[in-house]
């Protein structure tokens, strides 16, 4: 087995955070793949912040409807249980704590649960979108990202250097190398699980924040 998790395996690991009956918001990228790993028989309802509950699978080619997209602007389908609503109603669900779980991508996460995922000053500015509302309003927040950046820099850090999306909001971080629980109340970050073939020594080397080794 190759070392660590690939994108699909990260999504599968993130799917293990789902609970029966959850209302869930999935972000763009790897989080979108989580929908492919919902265990059979588990009832999970996907919310899309542009105004839909009960997202179905991507359409067949002849089913594409330009008026039916997810928050990543991908064409999708509705289910018999689906509902549509306005943007303000959608964010009332999110801000009001009615969504159980958000899984979203990140550029940096800190040991105490800060997250940065919307801007690299001077280089990239795609905008904020729904990310700030999601991290501050959803009950449980899971961040999914590569463990280190393209130039090898740690992305799991003691303090984020990029503009923040939220402070003390992330519960769980899933990287290609392992799973960590953030200490949102300053109790310290904890290693939950190593990805296959990854040693704790290697995680220490590639993580720019201390963590506890409470591996069960």
């Amino acid at each position: 087995m190759s070392r660590g998790w690939d994108r699909d395996a990260m999504a599968a690991r993130a799917a293990r955070e789902l609970r029966d009956g959850d209302y869930v918001n999935l972000g763009i990228g790897i989080p979108t793949l989580v929908a492919n790993h919902i265990p059979a028989g588990m009832r999970v309802t996907l919310q899309s912040e542009n105004g839909m509950l009960g997202m179905g699978p991507f359409p067949y080619d002849d089913e594409v409807d330009p008026d039916l997209v997810n928050a990543g602007k991908q064409t999708i389908t509705a289910l018999p249980s689906s509902s549509f609503f306005s943007s303000s109603a959608s964010f009332a669900m999110i801000r009001g704590g009615h969504i159980d779980l958000a899984i979203l991508g990140a550029m940096e996460v800190s040991a105490d649960g800060d997250i940065a995922n919307w801007s690299v000053p001077g280089k990239m500015m795609k905008g904020i979108g729904g990310a700030m509302d999601l991290v501050s309003g959803v009950r449980r927040v899971v961040a999914v990202m590569d463990h280190v950046g393209k130039s090898g820099q740690p992305k799991l850090v003691a303090r984020c250097s990029l503009p923040l999306t939220g402070r003390n909001v992330v519960d769980i971080v899933i990287t290609n190398l392992g799973v960590f629980a953030c200490g949102k109340r300053g109790e310290g970050m904890r290693l939950v699980e190593c990805a296959p073939g990854v040693s704790i020594a290697e995680l220490r080397e590639t993580t720019a924040a201390p963590f506890l080794e409470a591996v069960s």
Partner: peptide, 25 residues
Amino acid sequence: PQGTLAERIRAGGAGIPAFYTRTGV
């Protein structure tokens, strides 16, 4: 933030000049 944008507009239409949110703190 998208939800703040939506709520600011909703508030404008509902005659509510300001509101409090945790988003963006």
